[in-house]
Design a protein around this nucleic acid. Structure first.
Ligand SMILES: [Mn+2]
Ligand SMILES: [Mn+2]
Ligand SMILES: [Zn+2]
Ligand SMILES: [Zn+2]
Lengths: 142, 142
DNA sequence: CAATAGTTTAGAATTATTATAATGTAGATT
DNA sequence: AATCTACATTATAATAATTCTAAACTATTG
């Protein structure tokens, strides 16, 4: 965790111009110990809270999608009503807390290898991901 | 597959009034051999193609969500840009064809039992579902 | 220091979904 | 069968998320 990660270089490497807005977004997203999950709304709030300047919503959308295309971010679909993004771009599974609507990572090593007996002819498997929906234990004794 | 399924009774059983709109939606959804996946848009098209009368979009939304709440339909999240529904309400897995954006069922029996080693304290598992993303085999030799 | 290609921005446009409120209807009551 | 009432449908308006637009700005190149 270098104090001042060189996001300029990182951005250049993938052909994105290191503008101050993109560097700011990089800082919010990647200048931390652990990966995390966020919605566009979360990100906009984080930026406006942690920084003094405001960034246009369009720029946030554009940059997030540019990062997604470059493989810097991963989009997670759990709730069709919200778009979640993940700074952990590796293939992994999730718990989704239906009480808090929180996403929690689950490493591939936390789940035994998944064996799929069926296959689709002419198609190749790109990813296999598990979504485990969880909820509070005490409200289940109906 | 009775020719004229008694949707009126079915609707009454769960406390929904059997209006002609709901019966029409039932026919489109359940008067077939196999379960299937659809978006609201698909459903509206199906109704207007198969039937002569038009049903208000609001009614389609309301009815689909009423059915979902009653457990007659299940919502599937794969693509945050689209809401898919499933007339197969049992717990099952899916293949998602990234070329055609088509959802294909995968029975629980087609995948070996999934063993989750991690658990979230205080939380109970509600469901474990797998999403297998597939794509054409020949475009993968980049 | 231009010139240029790429970027940001505010605001408009689009799309999906939900809310509203007036009208209609199924089923019960007389 | 006429009337009543709660629930439904409908057209339309409102909202929310996302994308588009086109003008202003800026990082890089020469
Ligand atoms: Mn997207
Ligand atoms: Mn829904
Ligand atoms: Zn994750
Ligand atoms: Zn299905």
């Amino acid at each position: 965790m270098p104090k001042n990660c060189n996001f300029i270089e990182k951005l250049r490497e993938v052909g994105l111009r290191p503008t101050k807005q993109r560097i700011k977004i990089c800082e919010v997203l990647y200048n931390r110990e652990k990966t995390f999950h966020f919605t566009i709304n979360d990100l906009v709030k984080m930026i406006s809270e942690k920084m003094n300047e405001k960034i246009s919503l369009a720029t946030v959308y554009n940059t997030v999608h540019a990062f997604e295309k470059k493989g810097y971010l991963k989009e997670i679909s759990i709730d069709s009503h919200k778009s979640y993004f993940d700074t952990n771009t590796s293939s992994h599974h999730h718990f989704f807390d239906e009480d808090t609507h929180e996403l929690i990572d689950c490493d591939e090593s936390d789940i035994d290898k998944i064996n799929i007996k069926k296959n689709i002819t002419g198609k190749k498997i790109n990813s296999v991901e598990v979504l485990v929906r969880v909820a509070s234990d005490n409200q289940t004794q109906k």
